[in-house]
Amino acid sequence: MIREEAIKIPFQYAAGTAGSEFLINLRDHRQLTGSRCSDCERTLAPARAYCPDCGREGLHSVNIGPGAELVSWTIVPDKGVFALVRPDGADTAMLHKLLGPIDDPQPGIRLQVVFREERSGHINDIEGFAIVQENGE
């Protein structure tokens, strides 16, 4: 005998210090924020409370983007295209959506962050990253 049982539970996750700053800057300033680690001399995207590699805390917030470079992508039917993008000024890549239509994405292609009009301090305040047309249109 198989029985299907459902549960419905609301969760709410604190973004924390750096996470809050990152989301607030999306909402209020349409701005991507990264963190500068003075130990390993890298700028991490997105902003975070401590360096994942050297463990250092108290990182400095820096503006990154709005331009970015495509690092990797994966097309997921029904979900769209997930992409790893490296915002300008950052040394690491962040994960978001690649906006279409895209025929043949190439690594290193230039992108630009696209913000939603309605923003609430959420990762989806970013609609995704769109390919910058070469002719400047």
Binding site: E5, K8, P10, F11, Y13, G19, H122, I123
Partner: peptide, 17 residues
């Protein structure tokens, strides 16, 4: 300001008795 992210879990499982 402290930001938090709401996510609702709506999930079902097929349990074998």
């Amino acid at each position: 300001e402290r930001v938090s992210v709401p996510i609702e879990m709506v999930q079902s499982w097929r349990y074998s008795s």
